[in-house]
Design a protein around this nucleic acid. Structure first.
Lengths: 207, 207
DNA sequence: AAAATTATTGACCGGGGTGGTCTAATTTGT
DNA sequence: ACAAATTAGACCACCCCGGTCAATAATTTT
């Protein structure tokens, strides 16, 4: 909605978005300080209220911004044509890792939103959340080739366990490399390690 | 250290501790409000500063309180004589679940502490953290019977995967039953489901 | 070049919350 | 009955809050 904001140089726009996401995701809506935001963004106080009429409008803008970003930059990137569950999940996890590195506060911000009580959220935001969750769910479980799994194991349970495993691994990695730019991380070593875990999972759960 | 506080009726003492932990774990040290604490604890403002001379002293008291509680109430309860990794982890997970339910803010509070930058923490607190982490690590990995694992799988990787799986399951459960008293939860059904996951893990990773 | 429009800053506002104090009242112990 | 321990909350000076606005600088239009 805010016209002047969209005409801004990308870099300044990003600085404002980034500073806002950080502040909101660290403190929540009420506790977040617009003063802190403008300071971190390196702009004057007046500008923030020139681009957005008030705190709430900024917040709502960020909600939509993050939803679109996660949708286009992460969920939609998942390769639905890959029938191997573990391989599809591998690709999704790697995407998530780089996405998280490039947009450090987006997931945390959305996390805060999803923990917000129903009454405090605009009605259509709730719907957006559910839609995105549904799409994300489909992107992971749709058109999976179940015949790869061992017959003596409940396939759904196996998929749950694999999902928890890979999420746990990814979170451990995020934790260790927190703050460091992923470009500086030894990617080959990391990918190799990841592959080893995946191979182990395949031995354990596949025929 | 605070003499009058220890002589308090257990129930009031608990109310104060609980309200403080909640506030600190939700807002962090600086943002936490002593006014909010006394309101939630149902005591007058004066009392808090009668028991503890200032905010920091309360905070430090809580740190020690939580460390001791986690150590005695959770870590030390893990049965080191159980050589089956999955079984030991099962017992630990169930303990953690009930502990978490009885002390809802303790883990979150300690989580905040561990994310605090080094300079802001008393020196001996850092040491306490590392000690507890070491003990917890030992409690999970010491004297495990590795011969139970399949020979065609890297045992350490298998244990990592199992750990992530069970942590993921436990977190999902916590999430779903968040807020509800665990006494009201259908424990048999939950235990059964947990066992099914564990059995699946055994089929997958054990000989 | 002049005028009009847009972009930008930061001092400023009333209001509300901050950690902490202190007085005055009540309860307890003897 | 009296002293000591316990309690509540009004009060303090201070700081920060979201938001405004007048002054100016930069840019665009004429």
């Amino acid at each position: 909605m805010p016209k002047p904001f969209h005409n801004l140089e990308q870099e300044k726009q990003q600085r404002i978005i980034s500073a806002s996401l950080q502040e909101f995701s660290e403190k929540g809506y009420e506790q977040a300080s617009t003063n802190q935001i403008v300071k971190n963004a390196g702009i004057g106080k007046g500008m923030l209220f020139y681009y957005f009429n008030n705190k709430r409008e900024l917040y709502d803008y960020l909600i939509n911004y993050c939803f679109d970003l996660v949708h286009n930059g992460y969920v939609q990137q998942i390769d639905l044509s890959e029938p191997d569950f573990i391989e599809r999940f591998r690709q999704a996890s790697m995407n998530k890792l780089t996405f998280f590195n490039e947009n450090p506060f987006v997931f945390n911000f959305l996390g805060i939103i999803m923990l917000t009580e129903d009454e405090l959220l605009p009605h259509d935001t709730r719907k957006k959340i559910e839609q995105l969750q549904q799409i994300a769910y489909d992107s992971i479980y749709k058109d999976i080739d179940y015949s790869l799994f061992r017959d003596d194991i409940d396939t759904q349970k196996a998929m749950d366990l694999i999902k928890w495993s890979m999420d746990g691994y990814r979170e451990d990695i995020s934790q260790v490399y927190k703050g460091e730019d992923i470009a500086n991380v030894n990617m080959e070593k990391l990918t190799l390690e990841f592959t080893q875990y995946l191979d182990t999972l395949k031995i354990a759960f596949y025929k």
